[in-house]
Nucleic acid binder design. Sequence first.
DNA 1: GACAGATTAGGGCGATCGTCCTAGCAATTT
DNA 2: AAATTGCTAGGACGATCGCCCTAATCTGTC
Lengths: 196, 196
Amino acid sequence: MCAVKADETRRKIVVAADKLFYEQGFDTASFADIARVVEISRGNFYYHFKTKDAVLAAVIEHRLDERKAMLRHWEQEEDNPANRVKRFINILITNQTNIMAFGCPVGTLCTELAKLDHTLKSEAAGLFTLFAEWLERQFVELGCGGQAPDLAMHLLMRSQGVASLANTFQDAEFVRREVEAMYQWLDNQLSPKRPT
Amino acid sequence: MCAVKADETRRKIVVAADKLFYEQGFDTASFADIARVVEISRGNFYYHFKTKDAVLAAVIEHRLDERKAMLRHWEQEEDNPANRVKRFINILITNQTNIMAFGCPVGTLCTELAKLDHTLKSEAAGLFTLFAEWLERQFVELGCGGQAPDLAMHLLMRSQGVASLANTFQDAEFVRREVEAMYQWLDNQLSPKRPT
DNA sequence: GACAGATTAGGGCGATCGTCCTAGCAATTT
DNA sequence: AAATTGCTAGGACGATCGCCCTAATCTGTC
Protein backbone atom coordinates (compact mmCIF):
# COMPACT_ATOMS: atom_id res chain seq x y z
CA MET A 1 0.00 0.00 0.00
CA CYS A 2 3.01 2.22 -0.46
CA ALA A 3 1.01 4.26 -2.99
CA VAL A 4 3.73 3.87 -5.58
CA LYS A 5 1.19 2.87 -8.20
CA ALA A 6 -0.84 6.02 -7.74
CA ASP A 7 2.27 8.17 -7.80
CA GLU A 8 3.30 6.60 -11.07
CA THR A 9 -0.10 7.15 -12.67
CA ARG A 10 -0.21 10.69 -11.37
CA ARG A 11 3.18 11.33 -12.88
CA LYS A 12 2.07 9.95 -16.22
CA ILE A 13 -0.96 12.24 -16.15
CA VAL A 14 1.19 15.28 -15.44
CA VAL A 15 3.63 14.44 -18.23
CA ALA A 16 0.82 13.85 -20.72
CA ALA A 17 -1.02 17.00 -19.65
CA ASP A 18 2.20 18.99 -19.90
CA LYS A 19 2.64 17.90 -23.50
CA LEU A 20 -0.99 18.44 -24.46
CA PHE A 21 -1.27 21.82 -22.76
CA TYR A 22 1.80 22.85 -24.70
CA GLU A 23 0.73 21.50 -28.07
CA GLN A 24 -2.97 22.36 -27.99
CA GLY A 25 -3.27 24.93 -25.23
CA PHE A 26 -4.66 24.54 -21.72
CA ASP A 27 -8.24 25.33 -22.62
CA THR A 28 -8.39 23.15 -25.72
CA ALA A 29 -6.79 20.05 -24.22
CA SER A 30 -9.50 18.08 -22.42
CA PHE A 31 -9.61 15.44 -19.71
CA ALA A 32 -10.62 12.97 -22.38
CA ASP A 33 -7.52 13.82 -24.43
CA ILE A 34 -5.20 13.32 -21.47
CA ALA A 35 -6.91 10.12 -20.37
CA ARG A 36 -6.57 8.72 -23.89
CA VAL A 37 -2.82 9.33 -23.88
CA VAL A 38 -2.27 7.88 -20.40
CA GLU A 39 -4.64 5.03 -21.24
CA ILE A 40 -6.77 5.35 -18.17
CA SER A 41 -10.50 5.90 -17.97
CA ARG A 42 -11.87 9.41 -17.67
CA GLY A 43 -13.53 8.42 -14.44
CA ASN A 44 -10.25 7.42 -12.88
CA PHE A 45 -9.00 10.91 -13.44
CA TYR A 46 -11.01 12.22 -10.55
CA TYR A 47 -9.14 9.98 -8.13
CA HIS A 48 -5.86 11.73 -8.94
CA PHE A 49 -7.01 15.28 -9.67
CA LYS A 50 -10.22 16.87 -8.46
CA THR A 51 -10.26 19.69 -11.03
CA LYS A 52 -8.57 20.72 -14.27
CA ASP A 53 -6.97 23.61 -12.44
CA ALA A 54 -5.33 21.10 -10.11
CA VAL A 55 -3.81 19.41 -13.16
CA LEU A 56 -2.56 22.76 -14.39
CA ALA A 57 -1.02 23.54 -11.01
CA ALA A 58 0.79 20.19 -11.09
CA VAL A 59 1.98 20.82 -14.65
CA ILE A 60 3.38 24.23 -13.72
CA GLU A 61 5.09 22.66 -10.70
CA HIS A 62 6.51 19.95 -12.96
CA ARG A 63 7.79 22.50 -15.46
CA LEU A 64 9.42 24.47 -12.67
CA ASP A 65 11.21 21.33 -11.44
CA GLU A 66 12.41 20.49 -14.94
CA ARG A 67 13.72 24.00 -15.57
CA LYS A 68 15.43 24.18 -12.20
CA ALA A 69 17.15 20.88 -12.91
CA MET A 70 18.23 22.15 -16.32
CA LEU A 71 19.70 25.34 -14.87
CA ARG A 72 21.53 23.34 -12.18
CA HIS A 73 22.89 21.10 -14.90
CA TRP A 74 24.21 24.08 -16.83
CA GLU A 75 25.89 25.45 -13.72
CA GLN A 76 27.65 22.14 -13.21
CA GLU A 77 28.79 21.81 -16.79
CA GLU A 78 29.86 25.39 -17.42
CA ASP A 79 32.30 27.24 -15.20
CA ASN A 80 32.04 30.47 -17.13
CA PRO A 81 28.75 32.37 -16.57
CA ALA A 82 28.98 33.66 -20.14
CA ASN A 83 28.83 30.10 -21.41
CA ARG A 84 25.85 29.44 -19.16
CA VAL A 85 24.03 32.37 -20.72
CA LYS A 86 24.94 31.01 -24.14
CA ARG A 87 23.33 27.74 -23.13
CA PHE A 88 20.16 29.67 -22.46
CA ILE A 89 20.29 31.41 -25.83
CA ASN A 90 20.93 28.10 -27.51
CA ILE A 91 17.58 26.69 -26.35
CA LEU A 92 16.19 28.37 -29.46
CA ILE A 93 18.32 25.99 -31.52
CA THR A 94 18.07 22.79 -29.49
CA ASN A 95 14.31 23.14 -29.08
CA GLN A 96 13.76 24.63 -32.52
CA THR A 97 11.37 21.98 -33.84
CA ASN A 98 8.96 22.32 -30.93
CA ILE A 99 9.18 26.10 -30.88
CA MET A 100 8.37 26.33 -34.57
CA ALA A 101 5.37 24.08 -34.10
CA PHE A 102 3.98 25.34 -30.79
CA GLY A 103 5.92 28.42 -29.69
CA CYS A 104 7.66 28.88 -26.34
CA PRO A 105 6.11 26.61 -23.67
CA VAL A 106 6.41 29.31 -21.02
CA GLY A 107 5.37 32.32 -23.07
CA THR A 108 2.36 30.73 -24.74
CA LEU A 109 1.06 29.43 -21.41
CA CYS A 110 1.38 32.84 -19.76
CA THR A 111 -0.36 34.48 -22.70
CA GLU A 112 -3.25 32.04 -22.63
CA LEU A 113 -3.74 32.26 -18.88
CA ALA A 114 -3.72 36.05 -19.10
CA LYS A 115 -6.55 35.95 -21.64
CA LEU A 116 -8.49 33.49 -19.52
CA ASP A 117 -7.78 35.67 -16.48
CA HIS A 118 -6.87 32.41 -14.78
CA THR A 119 -6.09 32.11 -11.08
CA LEU A 120 -2.79 30.40 -11.82
CA LYS A 121 -1.39 32.95 -14.24
CA SER A 122 0.98 34.34 -11.63
CA GLU A 123 2.20 30.82 -10.92
CA ALA A 124 2.93 30.41 -14.62
CA ALA A 125 4.75 33.74 -14.59
CA GLY A 126 6.99 32.15 -11.99
CA LEU A 127 8.54 30.15 -14.81
CA PHE A 128 9.69 33.40 -16.39
CA THR A 129 10.86 34.73 -13.05
CA LEU A 130 12.97 31.61 -12.57
CA PHE A 131 14.85 32.30 -15.79
CA ALA A 132 15.03 36.04 -15.18
CA GLU A 133 16.61 35.63 -11.76
CA TRP A 134 18.97 32.93 -12.95
CA LEU A 135 20.13 35.08 -15.86
CA GLU A 136 20.47 38.02 -13.50
CA ARG A 137 22.80 36.02 -11.27
CA GLN A 138 24.95 35.11 -14.26
CA PHE A 139 25.23 38.76 -15.27
CA VAL A 140 26.13 39.73 -11.71
CA GLU A 141 28.89 37.15 -11.76
CA LEU A 142 30.04 38.63 -15.06
CA GLY A 143 30.43 41.98 -13.35
CA CYS A 144 27.44 43.75 -14.85
CA GLY A 145 26.34 44.96 -11.45
CA GLY A 146 23.21 47.07 -11.39
CA GLN A 147 22.64 46.43 -15.08
CA ALA A 148 22.13 42.72 -14.44
CA PRO A 149 18.31 42.76 -13.99
CA ASP A 150 17.78 44.80 -17.16
CA LEU A 151 20.13 42.61 -19.17
CA ALA A 152 18.33 39.51 -17.97
CA MET A 153 14.94 40.89 -18.98
CA HIS A 154 16.32 42.03 -22.31
CA LEU A 155 17.60 38.56 -23.13
CA LEU A 156 14.34 36.97 -22.02
CA MET A 157 12.51 39.44 -24.24
CA ARG A 158 14.58 38.54 -27.29
CA SER A 159 14.13 34.83 -26.80
CA GLN A 160 10.38 35.37 -26.58
CA GLY A 161 10.32 37.48 -29.70
CA VAL A 162 12.35 34.97 -31.68
CA ALA A 163 10.14 32.10 -30.50
CA SER A 164 7.01 33.98 -31.50
CA LEU A 165 8.16 34.79 -35.03
CA ALA A 166 9.77 31.38 -35.47
CA ASN A 167 6.40 29.87 -34.70
CA THR A 168 4.62 32.12 -37.18
CA PHE A 169 7.07 32.07 -40.08
CA GLN A 170 8.81 28.69 -39.71
CA ASP A 171 12.05 30.36 -40.74
CA ALA A 172 15.09 28.46 -39.47
CA GLU A 173 17.49 30.94 -41.05
CA PHE A 174 15.86 33.77 -39.09
CA VAL A 175 16.33 31.86 -35.85
CA ARG A 176 19.98 31.13 -36.62
CA ARG A 177 20.59 34.79 -37.43
CA GLU A 178 18.95 36.08 -34.27
CA VAL A 179 20.75 33.57 -32.07
CA GLU A 180 24.00 34.77 -33.60
CA ALA A 181 22.97 38.37 -32.88
CA MET A 182 22.26 37.44 -29.26
CA TYR A 183 25.74 35.92 -28.90
CA GLN A 184 27.12 39.14 -30.34
CA TRP A 185 25.06 41.21 -27.96
CA LEU A 186 26.33 39.14 -25.05
CA ASP A 187 29.95 39.72 -26.06
CA ASN A 188 29.30 43.44 -26.33
CA GLN A 189 27.93 43.54 -22.81
CA LEU A 190 31.04 41.87 -21.45
CA SER A 191 33.52 44.15 -23.21
CA PRO A 192 31.57 47.40 -23.51
CA LYS A 193 32.80 49.80 -26.20
CA ARG A 194 31.07 52.72 -24.52
CA PRO A 195 27.48 52.21 -25.70
CA THR A 196 24.88 54.83 -24.66
CA MET B 1 -33.75 46.78 -49.44
CA CYS B 2 -30.33 48.13 -50.25
CA ALA B 3 -28.91 45.68 -47.73
CA VAL B 4 -27.46 48.53 -45.71
CA LYS B 5 -29.02 47.17 -42.55
CA ALA B 6 -27.38 43.79 -42.95
CA ASP B 7 -24.03 45.38 -43.70
CA GLU B 8 -24.25 47.44 -40.54
CA THR B 9 -25.12 44.42 -38.39
CA ARG B 10 -22.39 42.40 -40.03
CA ARG B 11 -19.92 45.15 -39.26
CA LYS B 12 -20.99 45.26 -35.63
CA ILE B 13 -20.48 41.52 -35.38
CA VAL B 14 -16.98 41.76 -36.81
CA VAL B 15 -16.00 44.58 -34.47
CA ALA B 16 -17.37 42.76 -31.42
CA ALA B 17 -15.75 39.49 -32.48
CA ASP B 18 -12.45 41.28 -33.06
CA LYS B 19 -12.49 42.61 -29.52
CA LEU B 20 -13.58 39.33 -27.94
CA PHE B 21 -11.13 37.20 -29.93
CA TYR B 22 -8.41 39.53 -28.73
CA GLU B 23 -9.44 39.67 -25.10
CA GLN B 24 -10.50 36.06 -24.56
CA GLY B 25 -8.95 34.20 -27.47
CA PHE B 26 -10.62 32.82 -30.58
CA ASP B 27 -11.48 29.45 -29.11
CA THR B 28 -12.84 30.76 -25.82
CA ALA B 29 -15.03 33.52 -27.23
CA SER B 30 -18.34 31.98 -28.26
CA PHE B 31 -21.19 32.89 -30.62
CA ALA B 32 -23.29 33.58 -27.53
CA ASP B 33 -20.68 36.05 -26.22
CA ILE B 34 -20.56 37.95 -29.48
CA ALA B 35 -24.33 37.97 -29.89
CA ARG B 36 -24.69 39.36 -26.37
CA VAL B 37 -22.39 42.27 -27.16
CA VAL B 38 -24.04 43.06 -30.50
CA GLU B 39 -27.45 42.55 -28.91
CA ILE B 40 -28.78 40.19 -31.53
CA SER B 41 -30.10 36.68 -31.06
CA ARG B 42 -27.82 33.71 -31.48
CA GLY B 43 -30.07 32.43 -34.22
CA ASN B 44 -29.68 35.59 -36.24
CA PHE B 45 -25.97 34.96 -36.32
CA TYR B 46 -26.33 32.26 -38.92
CA TYR B 47 -27.86 34.72 -41.37
CA HIS B 48 -24.64 36.75 -41.41
CA PHE B 49 -21.99 34.07 -40.88
CA LYS B 50 -22.37 30.39 -41.63
CA THR B 51 -19.48 29.25 -39.42
CA LYS B 52 -17.20 30.55 -36.70
CA ASP B 53 -14.29 30.27 -39.09
CA ALA B 54 -16.10 32.68 -41.41
CA VAL B 55 -16.26 35.18 -38.55
CA LEU B 56 -12.54 34.70 -37.94
CA ALA B 57 -11.79 35.26 -41.62
CA ALA B 58 -13.77 38.49 -41.53
CA VAL B 59 -11.99 39.58 -38.34
CA ILE B 60 -8.58 38.97 -39.90
CA GLU B 61 -9.67 40.90 -42.99
CA HIS B 62 -10.87 43.72 -40.76
CA ARG B 63 -7.61 43.81 -38.85
CA LEU B 64 -5.68 43.90 -42.10
CA ASP B 65 -7.72 46.87 -43.29
CA GLU B 66 -7.19 48.72 -40.03
CA ARG B 67 -3.44 48.13 -40.06
CA LYS B 68 -3.11 49.14 -43.69
CA ALA B 69 -4.97 52.36 -42.96
CA MET B 70 -2.71 53.02 -39.99
CA LEU B 71 0.45 52.50 -42.03
CA ARG B 72 -0.89 54.77 -44.78
CA HIS B 73 -1.62 57.37 -42.15
CA TRP B 74 1.93 57.23 -40.84
CA GLU B 75 3.31 57.60 -44.34
CA GLN B 76 1.22 60.72 -44.83
CA GLU B 77 2.18 62.27 -41.52
CA GLU B 78 5.87 61.44 -41.50
CA ASP B 79 8.20 62.34 -44.37
CA ASN B 80 11.21 60.72 -42.78
CA PRO B 81 11.15 56.88 -42.89
CA ALA B 82 13.04 56.82 -39.60
CA ASN B 83 10.17 58.65 -37.93
CA ARG B 84 7.75 56.16 -39.48
CA VAL B 85 9.69 53.30 -37.93
CA LYS B 86 9.61 55.14 -34.63
CA ARG B 87 5.86 55.30 -34.94
CA PHE B 88 5.85 51.53 -35.18
CA ILE B 89 8.05 51.15 -32.13
CA ASN B 90 5.84 53.56 -30.25
CA ILE B 91 2.81 51.26 -30.58
CA LEU B 92 4.18 49.58 -27.47
CA ILE B 93 3.55 52.83 -25.61
CA THR B 94 0.30 54.02 -27.17
CA ASN B 95 -1.29 50.58 -26.90
CA GLN B 96 0.38 49.75 -23.60
CA THR B 97 -2.78 49.18 -21.57
CA ASN B 98 -4.22 46.63 -23.97
CA ILE B 99 -0.87 44.91 -24.48
CA MET B 100 -0.36 44.49 -20.75
CA ALA B 101 -3.82 43.01 -20.39
CA PHE B 102 -4.05 40.82 -23.49
CA GLY B 103 -0.70 40.82 -25.28
CA CYS B 104 -0.12 41.70 -28.93
CA PRO B 105 -3.30 41.22 -30.98
CA VAL B 106 -1.35 39.82 -33.93
CA GLY B 107 1.11 37.65 -32.06
CA THR B 108 -1.36 36.06 -29.68
CA LEU B 109 -3.74 35.22 -32.52
CA CYS B 110 -0.98 33.59 -34.58
CA THR B 111 0.15 31.61 -31.55
CA GLU B 112 -3.34 30.36 -30.80
CA LEU B 113 -4.10 29.41 -34.39
CA ALA B 114 -0.80 27.56 -34.60
CA LYS B 115 -1.74 25.45 -31.58
CA LEU B 116 -5.19 24.79 -32.99
CA ASP B 117 -3.56 23.97 -36.33
CA HIS B 118 -6.25 26.20 -37.79
CA THR B 119 -6.84 26.61 -41.52
CA LEU B 120 -6.59 30.38 -41.25
CA LYS B 121 -3.27 30.54 -39.43
CA SER B 122 -1.46 31.60 -42.59
CA GLU B 123 -4.02 34.35 -43.13
CA ALA B 124 -3.31 35.58 -39.61
CA ALA B 125 0.41 35.45 -40.36
CA GLY B 126 -0.37 37.88 -43.17
CA LEU B 127 -0.78 40.54 -40.48
CA PHE B 128 2.84 40.04 -39.52
CA THR B 129 3.90 40.00 -43.15
CA LEU B 130 2.16 43.31 -43.67
CA PHE B 131 4.27 44.95 -40.97
CA ALA B 132 7.45 43.14 -42.01
CA GLU B 133 7.20 44.31 -45.61
CA TRP B 134 6.25 47.83 -44.60
CA LEU B 135 9.21 48.06 -42.23
CA GLU B 136 11.43 46.60 -44.91
CA ARG B 137 10.41 49.36 -47.32
CA GLN B 138 11.25 52.00 -44.72
CA PHE B 139 14.69 50.51 -44.18
CA VAL B 140 15.28 50.38 -47.91
CA GLU B 141 14.40 54.07 -48.11
CA LEU B 142 16.85 54.68 -45.29
CA GLY B 143 19.58 53.12 -47.41
CA CYS B 144 19.96 49.85 -45.55
CA GLY B 145 19.82 47.92 -48.81
CA GLY B 146 20.10 44.16 -48.52
CA GLN B 147 19.99 44.39 -44.72
CA ALA B 148 16.45 45.75 -44.84
CA PRO B 149 14.55 42.42 -44.55
CA ASP B 150 16.66 41.30 -41.59
CA LEU B 151 16.29 44.62 -39.84
CA ALA B 152 12.52 44.51 -40.32
CA MET B 153 12.27 41.04 -38.84
CA HIS B 154 14.57 42.01 -35.98
CA LEU B 155 12.35 44.93 -35.04
CA LEU B 156 9.22 42.84 -35.32
CA MET B 157 10.88 40.26 -33.09
CA ARG B 158 11.70 42.82 -30.42
CA SER B 159 8.20 44.27 -30.38
CA GLN B 160 6.83 40.75 -29.94
CA GLY B 161 9.22 39.99 -27.12
CA VAL B 162 8.40 43.21 -25.30
CA ALA B 163 4.67 42.65 -25.71
CA SER B 164 4.95 39.12 -24.34
CA LEU B 165 6.88 40.09 -21.21
CA ALA B 166 4.82 43.24 -20.70
CA ASN B 167 1.76 41.02 -20.64
CA THR B 168 3.31 38.65 -18.14
CA PHE B 169 5.00 41.08 -15.77
CA GLN B 170 2.87 44.23 -16.10
CA ASP B 171 6.05 46.28 -15.89
CA ALA B 172 5.64 49.72 -17.50
CA GLU B 173 9.21 50.68 -16.70
CA PHE B 174 10.49 47.65 -18.60
CA VAL B 175 8.45 48.66 -21.64
CA ARG B 176 9.74 52.23 -21.51
CA ARG B 177 13.33 51.00 -21.23
CA GLU B 178 13.04 48.60 -24.14
CA VAL B 179 11.32 51.16 -26.36
CA GLU B 180 14.20 53.51 -25.63
CA ALA B 181 16.65 50.74 -26.53
CA MET B 182 14.83 50.20 -29.82
CA TYR B 183 15.12 53.89 -30.67
CA GLN B 184 18.83 53.61 -29.88
CA TRP B 185 19.16 50.53 -32.04
CA LEU B 186 17.43 52.33 -34.90
CA ASP B 187 19.85 55.24 -34.66
CA ASN B 188 22.79 52.85 -34.69
CA GLN B 189 21.54 51.22 -37.87
CA LEU B 190 21.35 54.58 -39.60
CA SER B 191 24.84 55.76 -38.60
CA PRO B 192 26.75 52.49 -38.26
CA LYS B 193 29.89 52.64 -36.12
CA ARG B 194 31.30 49.51 -37.73
CA PRO B 195 29.39 46.85 -35.78
CA THR B 196 30.24 43.21 -36.47
C1' DG C 1 -53.10 48.02 -48.52
C1' DA C 2 -51.24 43.68 -50.54
C1' DC C 3 -47.15 41.59 -51.72
C1' DA C 4 -42.03 40.17 -51.70
C1' DG C 5 -37.82 40.04 -50.00
C1' DA C 6 -34.67 41.16 -46.21
C1' DT C 7 -33.79 40.47 -41.53
C1' DT C 8 -34.68 38.67 -37.00
C1' DA C 9 -35.93 35.71 -32.80
C1' DG C 10 -36.07 31.50 -30.59
C1' DG C 11 -35.51 27.02 -29.96
C1' DG C 12 -33.67 22.39 -30.94
C1' DC C 13 -29.78 19.34 -32.75
C1' DG C 14 -25.91 16.15 -31.39
C1' DA C 15 -21.46 16.53 -29.39
C1' DT C 16 -18.33 17.57 -25.85
C1' DC C 17 -17.01 19.94 -21.79
C1' DG C 18 -15.60 19.48 -16.50
C1' DT C 19 -17.32 17.19 -12.74
C1' DC C 20 -19.07 13.64 -9.84
C1' DC C 21 -20.85 9.07 -8.13
C1' DT C 22 -20.63 4.22 -7.45
C1' DA C 23 -19.78 -0.58 -8.17
C1' DG C 24 -16.01 -3.63 -8.72
C1' DC C 25 -11.26 -5.15 -9.32
C1' DA C 26 -6.44 -5.60 -7.30
C1' DA C 27 -3.32 -5.94 -3.77
C1' DT C 28 -1.85 -6.09 0.82
C1' DT C 29 -2.63 -7.19 5.76
C1' DT C 30 -4.38 -9.85 9.42
C1' DA D 1 -9.43 -17.27 3.79
C1' DA D 2 -11.42 -12.94 5.11
C1' DA D 3 -11.22 -8.25 5.35
C1' DT D 4 -9.45 -3.71 4.48
C1' DT D 5 -7.63 -0.44 1.58
C1' DG D 6 -5.89 1.40 -2.97
C1' DC D 7 -7.09 2.08 -7.40
C1' DT D 8 -9.94 1.80 -11.55
C1' DA D 9 -13.87 1.66 -15.05
C1' DG D 10 -17.97 3.38 -16.82
C1' DG D 11 -21.54 6.10 -17.00
C1' DA D 12 -24.63 10.07 -15.71
C1' DC D 13 -25.10 15.17 -14.45
C1' DG D 14 -26.09 19.84 -16.19
C1' DA D 15 -24.04 23.27 -18.97
C1' DT D 16 -22.31 24.97 -23.14
C1' DC D 17 -20.48 24.48 -27.65
C1' DG D 18 -21.14 25.40 -33.02
C1' DC D 19 -24.64 24.73 -36.09
C1' DC D 20 -29.19 24.59 -38.25
C1' DC D 21 -34.23 25.15 -39.06
C1' DT D 22 -38.51 27.69 -39.12
C1' DA D 23 -41.88 31.01 -38.02
C1' DA D 24 -42.48 35.79 -37.23
C1' DT D 25 -41.34 40.62 -38.09
C1' DC D 26 -39.73 44.49 -40.51
C1' DT D 27 -39.03 47.29 -44.77
C1' DG D 28 -39.69 49.02 -49.09
C1' DT D 29 -42.31 48.51 -53.81
C1' DC D 30 -46.18 48.17 -56.60
